[in-house]
Simulated assay, not measured.
Amino acid sequence: MSGENWVWWFWVSGSSIVAAACGIIAWWRGGAPERYGFTLILIGWTLTPFVQDRGGHGPGVWVMLLDIITFAGLIVISVWSRRIWTLFAGAFMLDTVASHLVVFLAPHVDLYSYITSLGLWSGYALALSMVAGVWENEIYRKARASLSQEAHQKL
Score class of each variant (00 low, 15 high):
M1S: 15
M1A: 12
M1H: 14
S2F: 12
E4D: 12
V7Q: 14
W9D: 10
F10K: 00
F10V: 04
V12M: 02
V12R: 03
S13K: 12
S13P: 07
G14T: 00
G14C: 02
S16I: 13
S16H: 14
V18K: 05
V18L: 05
A19D: 09
A19W: 09
A21F: 10
C22N: 02
A26S: 08
W28R: 06
W28P: 03
R29S: 10
G30T: 04
G31L: 08
G31Y: 07
G31A: 10
A32T: 13
P33I: 04
Y36C: 13
Y36I: 14
F38N: 01
T39E: 06
L42E: 03
L42Q: 00
I43V: 07
G44Y: 02
W45C: 11
W45G: 14
W45F: 13
T46N: 04
T48Q: 12
T48H: 15
P49M: 07
P49K: 04
F50T: 05
V51N: 06
D53R: 01
R54S: 08
G55H: 11
G55T: 10
G56I: 06
H57W: 11
P59I: 10
L65P: 06
L65G: 06
L65T: 07
D67Q: 08
T70A: 09
F71C: 13
F71H: 14
A72R: 01
G73F: 02
G73D: 09
V76Y: 10
I77M: 04
S78G: 15
W80L: 08
S81K: 00
S81Y: 00
R83T: 11
I84L: 11
L87Y: 15
F88G: 14
F88V: 10
F88M: 11
G90L: 06
G90Q: 00
F92A: 03
V97Q: 09
V97P: 05
H100M: 00
H100A: 01
L101C: 12
F104Q: 09
F104L: 07
A106C: 12
P107A: 01
P107F: 00
P107S: 05
H108D: 15
V109P: 01
V109G: 05
D110E: 06
Y112W: 13
Y112I: 12
Y112K: 15
Y112V: 13
S113R: 12
S113Y: 14
I115K: 08
I115W: 05
S117A: 15
G119Q: 04
G119C: 02
G123W: 01
Y124T: 05
L128I: 05
G133P: 00
W135K: 06
E136K: 03
E136D: 04
E136W: 01
N137W: 10
E138A: 14
Y140Q: 13
A143M: 05
A143F: 03
A143W: 07
A143L: 08
R144M: 05
R144A: 05
A145V: 00
A145I: 01
S146A: 10
Q149I: 09
E150N: 10
A151W: 07
L155T: 07
